[in-house]
Design a protein around this nucleic acid. Structure first.
Lengths: 195, 195
DNA sequence: AGCAAACTAGCACACCCGTGCTAATCTCAG
DNA sequence: CTGAGATTAGCACGGGTGTGCTAGTTTGCT
């Protein structure tokens, strides 16, 4: 054997190159050549890890979802449930350069799904997970676990969350974005008030 | 002179071909050749109307915004303000095949904006218009025109609207979608209740 | 040291890309 | 009918695309 070295690290490096190309030049500019160049490797090396373009994009999408998941798992449950919920949900808003890029890439990959059917499964899974998270937080805030009535309320919250995410993406990144978290707080307060 | 015929109709025909290609094969598949083939014309003819690819995509985006605007303008103000507001806003949700395709194309074009900077201006304009519409409806429902306090409430509504739009896009088109309008009604009811 | 596996590097092919360009065809005003 | 401008048709160029393929090079276990 030889350098069994971090094959996964190489994959991550290449996925990040994919993201960068998407951010800089749009999804149409993503090719094995542009990505390899962005990553500073030759095409042959890239194709040793990802034999086809589809595999490259699929991994890039999966890693992005993984990143978001990991980020939200770092939030520790505190004393105040509302504060905890807010912290968790803020992780799904593009408030930092990283999460902003994440969302931008996400949208680009969704737009490409007609050509890459594998991507819709990834997207659907992430969507369901986020929906479940909203439901769990709603049940927690309302202190009524397993109440089917809360499903609609959770969907409402989920809609606000994704809507805010898009609106933040429209604003230039330098703009003040506290208004978004204020609206999110209001939405959480509604759930608590109606508990 | 010769057939000064509907040059604009031809443009519309080509724009629709663009949409169809995006829907079927993703934004990356949009080229002058694929679009011309989809429209049933040769590349030369397409390029007589749209000399460059950028012009083709720009017009396609603008027409899409125009379509949505036209659609919403057909709603007549009725007796019940809440009902009127709901009808207006429902036009921005992908509830029909047409509006669904519209949103899908919209997202694809947004994803391509790094490569086509003209698209972000179109997108921003549409976004602002929708924001203004939400504000006007909110003021109407709350019976408090020009109350700056309503700006945040209108943004909240706007977020719910766009969030629901995305969620409807995730669901297969055949699925029941009344839940979305129910949530929208609830959001409007909140505005009225707090008037 | 030796060697097999992992990795890098790159050539080659057939195909699609946008666009400049010319020639043929059509259609109506005169 | 005639001719001019609108429209269609298509060739050609340089360049980018994904991927099959073959050599070189490195690496670490035995």
């Amino acid at each position: 054997m030889a350098r069994t070295i971090d094959r996964n690290a190489r994959k991550v490096q290449l996925a990040q190159a994919v993201w960068q190309v998407i951010l800089d030049r749009g999804i149409s500019a993503v090719s094995v050549r542009t990505v390899a160049e962005q990553a500073g490797v030759v095409v042959g090396s890239l194709r040793h890890v990802f034999p086809t373009r589809a595999e490259l994009l699929q991994f890039s999408a999966e890693l992005m979802v993984q990143r978001a998941t990991d980020r939200v798992l770092t939030v520790r449950e505190g004393s105040d449930p509302a504060e905890y919920a807010l912290e968790v949900l803020k992780n799904f808003l593009p408030l930092t350069a990283d999460s902003r890029a994440e969302l931008e890439v996400n949208i680009a990959l969704i737009a490409e799904s007609p050509a890459l059917p594998q991507l819709v499964a990834i997207r659907n899974h992430a969507y369901e997970e986020l929906g479940n998270a909203c439901l769990r937080l709603t049940e927690m805030l309302a202190c009524r676990p397993n109440d089917p009535e809360l499903v609609e309320r959770a969907r409402h919250l989920h809609a606000v969350l994704d809507g805010l995410a898009i609106h933040l993406l429209m604003d230039p990144p330098t703009n003040d974005s506290t208004w978004a978290t204020v609206i999110l707080e209001k939405e959480l307060a509604r759930i608590i008030r109606n508990r």
